[in-house]
Simulated assay, not measured.
Amino acid sequence: MRVYQDQLSKQLSPLKQCYMIFGDDPWLCETSRSQILKHAKKQGFDEKIQLIQETGFNWNSLIDEWQAMSLFSSRRVIELTLPQAKPGAEGGAIFQSLMKMANPDVLLIITGPKLAAEQTKSKWFKTLDNHGVYIPCATPEGQQFQRWLDTRIQHFDLTLSRDAKEMLFSLYEGNLLAADQSLQLLQLLSPNQQISSQELTRYFEDQSRFNVFQLTDAMLNNQQDNAQHILSQLKAEGVAMPILLWGIFKELGILLQLKSALESQQSLQSLWGKLRIWDKRKPLYQAALNRLTLTQIESLLASASELELNLKQQGIEDWTGLSHLSLLFDPKAHLALSHIKLNHWN
Rank of each mutant, 00 (worst) to 15 (best):
Q67A: 06
G44I: 07
F45K: 06
T55M: 12
I52H: 11
D46A: 08
L62M: 08
I49K: 08
Q53G: 01
I52A: 05
E47T: 04
L62K: 02
I52S: 12
G44R: 09
G44H: 05
Q67I: 06
I52K: 13
W59F: 09
G44Q: 12
N60D: 15
N60M: 10
W59T: 01
Q50E: 15
L51Y: 10
K48S: 04
G56Y: 11
F45Q: 03
L37C: 10
L37K: 14
K41Y: 06
A68W: 14
Q53P: 02
N60Q: 15
L62V: 01
K48P: 02
Q43C: 03
N58K: 11
M69N: 10
N58D: 15
L51I: 10
F45G: 01
L62Y: 02
G44Y: 11
E47C: 00
I49L: 12
Q43L: 08
N60C: 01
L51M: 14
I49C: 04
Q50R: 14
K38P: 00
W66G: 00
L37P: 02
E54K: 14
H39W: 09
S61Q: 15
W59V: 00
K42P: 02
Q50M: 06
I49D: 13
S61V: 13
S70M: 06
I63S: 11
Q53Y: 03
N60P: 01
L51V: 06
K38Y: 03
Q43M: 05
E65G: 01
S70W: 10
F57Y: 11
G56P: 04
K42Q: 15
D64S: 08
T55Q: 15
S61Y: 12
S61R: 13
H39A: 07
D46V: 03
E65I: 03
F57P: 02
K38D: 13
T55L: 13
K42G: 11
Q67W: 09
E65F: 06
S61D: 15
K42T: 10
I49G: 03
E47A: 00
F57C: 03
E65Y: 08
D64G: 01
A40K: 04
I49E: 14
L51P: 03
D46K: 07
Q50N: 14
E54A: 08
N58V: 06
W66H: 07
G44L: 07
Q50G: 00
M69L: 13
L51S: 07
A68R: 15
M69I: 09
F45R: 05
F57R: 06
K41M: 07
F57V: 00
K42I: 03
T55W: 13
A68E: 14
A40R: 02
L62R: 04
Q53C: 06
L37D: 10
E54Y: 04
K41S: 05
Q67P: 03
D46Q: 11
Q53E: 15
K41V: 00
L37V: 06
I63N: 07
L51K: 12
Q50I: 09
W59Q: 05
K38G: 09
L62I: 04
K48N: 10
N58L: 08
Q43W: 00
I63Y: 08
A40L: 05
Q50F: 09
E65A: 08
K42Y: 08
N60I: 04
F45Y: 13
S61P: 05
